[in-house]
Design a protein around this nucleic acid. Structure first.
Lengths: 151, 151
DNA sequence: GATGAAAAATCTGTGAC
DNA sequence: GTCACAGATTTTTCATC
């Protein structure tokens, strides 16, 4: 599926996604044209999904990020779809994850400060449909760069 | 802090991060030079943290992703640092988050299948230092694009 | 202090080998 | 997989508001 060159290219791409293809090529030890063609193929195969712009909400004045766990009402078959559709409409919800098991869903919510968070929580979160139970955790930090990766 | 033009540029960038600056400029209704200067400034200010390459682990044969919650041993002051340092060394750990409260930490772990996951869990996770308690949730999907954003 | 137009430098993507 | 090249894009400069 992936040979060693692909793996080197992927590692370089993860290490410095904004780098020009030529840069990545050099670091991976191939010519730019080769790097370009291989990265193109990896994107076609869906292995490289997309480039994503990461915004630092803290720098924009959103000091609080909370991870909320939800259990939904199991008697309502449309609970999942309704809940997700509603959650997507809340601007302060920046991520939605679904799970197998007791906990059905997790939302990440950002707010300017704790006061603002309380406001969002009451007006936008508690009003989401089919909630059976909620648990909140305040997020302190996210460490994204593993030293080692499985590629 | 941000004026309306910055906000438009940010929205366009989030909507299509791979687009050329000229494209983003046009969609935001400014010239490429202006777009470039403003995006540069936003990056300097740390508001645009980085471009990130998103890898589809599933397409690479990692079918299982699990979110693990840890409580650590509160009698050991170095528990946090030790645990994080060790977790960063595990290739299958692709994200680390820290929290305020009863749950101290969350790791996202990927594996080829459930058998492989069991193997990693026993040999690489249970051997991490200072664990008091673990809870696992199997991740089904992640929805990243909120329809509305707070910018 | 920021903008737009245009030039210069750099990068992307393609065809031939 | 490499090399060379045309076209596109990024980044700088400079005059202007």
């Amino acid at each position: 599926m992936l040979d060693d060159t692909d793996r080197r290219l992927l590692r370089q791409l993860l290490a410095d996604p904004a780098a020009a293809t030529g840069e990545i090529a050099e670091r991976a030890g191939v010519t730019p044209a080769t790097a370009w063609r291989r990265l193109e193929r990896l994107a076609e195969q869906g292995i490289i999904r997309a480039q994503e712009a990461v915004i630092d909400w803290r720098a924009l004045g959103y000091e609080v990020e909370v991870s909320l766990r939800f259990s939904l009402d199991k008697t309502e078959p449309r609970a999942f779809d309704d809940f997700i559709a509603a959650a997507r409409g809340v601007p302060e919800v920046i991520a939605i994850e679904t799970f197998l098991g007791r906990v059905d869903l997790r939302l990440n919510v950002i707010a300017r400060d704790m006061r603002h968070y309380q406001e969002i929580y009451r007006s936008r979160i508690l009003t989401l449909p089919h909630i059976a139970d909620i648990e909140a955790l305040m997020l302190i930090s996210t460490i994204k760069d593993a030293e080692a990766l499985p590629i």
